[in-house]
Amino acid sequence: MSETGTADRLIQFIREEYRTSDPIPLHAPAFRGNEQKYVADAIESTFVSSVGAYVDRFERDIEAFTGCERAVATVNGTAALHIGLRLLGVGPGDLVVTQPLTFVATCNAISYCGAEPLFIDVDRHTMGLSPAALAAWLEENAFVDDDGLCRTKQAQRAIRACVPMHTFGHPVELDRLVDVCAIWGIPLLEDAAESLGSYYNGRHTGTFGAVATLSFNGNKTITTGGGGMVLTSHALGARAKHITTTAKVAHPFEYVHDEVGYNYRMPNLNAALGCAQMEQLAGFLAAKRALAERYAALLDGNEYQFVREPEGCRSNYWLNAVICEGREQRDALLGQTNGQGVMTRPIWALMNHLPMYEKSIRGDLSNAQWLAERVVNLPSSVPPAQL
């Protein structure tokens, strides 16, 4: 079948899934539970800002679901990343390993600390940071000093952390990445913004490193409108809670702050929405996996290669994606679908191509470039039939 014919079949399939002739978004939230009830309850309680029962409940719900020791809610996922990096001691002049194929928030949070990203290539089968590429780059360009700190050979700059991102909810090769980071003494921070409900060898993403972060933006698997979460240990969680709440020391009436803190607290109204969404998360995940299977069956044997979860993983399929044969085919698919009111999107522009990061240290980025020229995301909201 021709490319145009396959694209037409894909558009028809998507319209049948979402049962509408209206424009179809890439990923819309689904509100079919207690969202209005809980938000109204928060309003009635008058605790609508940063203190309230729903914030505590949402944190406990995330802990129970992911298996992390401590979850600390934040106003958005970027704030969570910033705090996670602070917990690991990232500061001015440091380098932080990350991937060029990511949303800009990953690198922006590094910049907030006065640090700089160090770009390492991704693996094609995960679209996430490659343990092999990282190991090779470190062997050639880094050493561990007498204090156990990894530094670059050329300028002896500290490599303070490693931040892989689980692209579209598909886990990176965490076992190998954990091993590489351990050998070189580099703390691991998982950017799990997109991977709530994804598992690597039966263990939830975000529980492999010293710290991890989640996002609950309006386009994520569950949403709080805007919001994020830091996942970490009890000890680091206590510190995260302190510095995200303006570093205020408890006192009956005095305002005492013992260090520079951040007003990164999640409002109770947002957490109320999140609690209602968590009650439906299992259903959302099942429906999204079923949608992914239908996409895969439709595209089997066609020129668009459907992106499947890596071996040994169970992905949330936050965003479904296909890999085209090249840039020309990618652009044709984007043009035809968007021209007919079906939103599709390319993967992000590589971070090393953005003006603020184009001079950052980097290894060979061939896989990231290859994917950037070929990947197209498909509508991935939970279909109405599955709610």
Rank of each mutant, 00 (worst) to 15 (best):
Y264L: 01
A272L: 04
G326C: 02
V256E: 05
G227A: 01
A297T: 12
A250E: 14
G283Y: 02
T232E: 02
L285M: 11
Q329A: 14
Q280C: 15
H242L: 10
M229L: 02
V256I: 11
D331R: 02
A272T: 07
G237W: 01
Y295R: 08
R265Y: 00
N302S: 15
G283N: 15
H234T: 08
A247C: 14
N263Q: 09
A296G: 13
V256P: 00
A286Y: 05
E303K: 13
K288E: 14
E309Q: 13
E303D: 15
R330W: 03
L334P: 04
R239Y: 04
G312F: 05
A276S: 09
D258V: 00
R265P: 03
A240M: 01
N270L: 09
G237V: 03
R265D: 13
L333V: 15
Y295N: 09
G227P: 06
G312M: 11
F253E: 10
I323F: 07
E309A: 15
G261F: 06
A321P: 04
A292F: 00
G228I: 06
V322Y: 03
E309K: 01
T246W: 11
R330E: 12
Q305R: 15
V249P: 04
E279R: 10
A297D: 09
A272M: 05
R265F: 08
R330L: 08
Q329V: 09
L236T: 03
P252T: 11
F306G: 07
A296W: 04
C324D: 02
N302T: 15
M278E: 03
G341W: 10
C324V: 02
F306K: 07
L334N: 02
P252G: 05
A238S: 04
G339P: 13
I323V: 13
D300K: 15
G274Y: 06
D300F: 12
N302C: 14
E309R: 03
Y317F: 15
G228P: 02
R327C: 05
M266G: 14
E309W: 01
A292S: 13
A271L: 07
G283Q: 11
P252S: 06
A290I: 03
N270C: 11
Q329S: 06
M229T: 13
C275N: 08
E328Q: 09
R330Q: 12
L231K: 06
Q336H: 12
E259K: 13
Q329H: 04
L291N: 07
A272D: 03
H242N: 12
T245L: 05
L319K: 10
G228L: 08
P252L: 07
A247P: 04
F253G: 14
L319S: 00
G326M: 00
A238C: 00
Y317G: 01
H251C: 14
E293P: 03
V230K: 05
E303N: 14
G326D: 08
A286P: 03
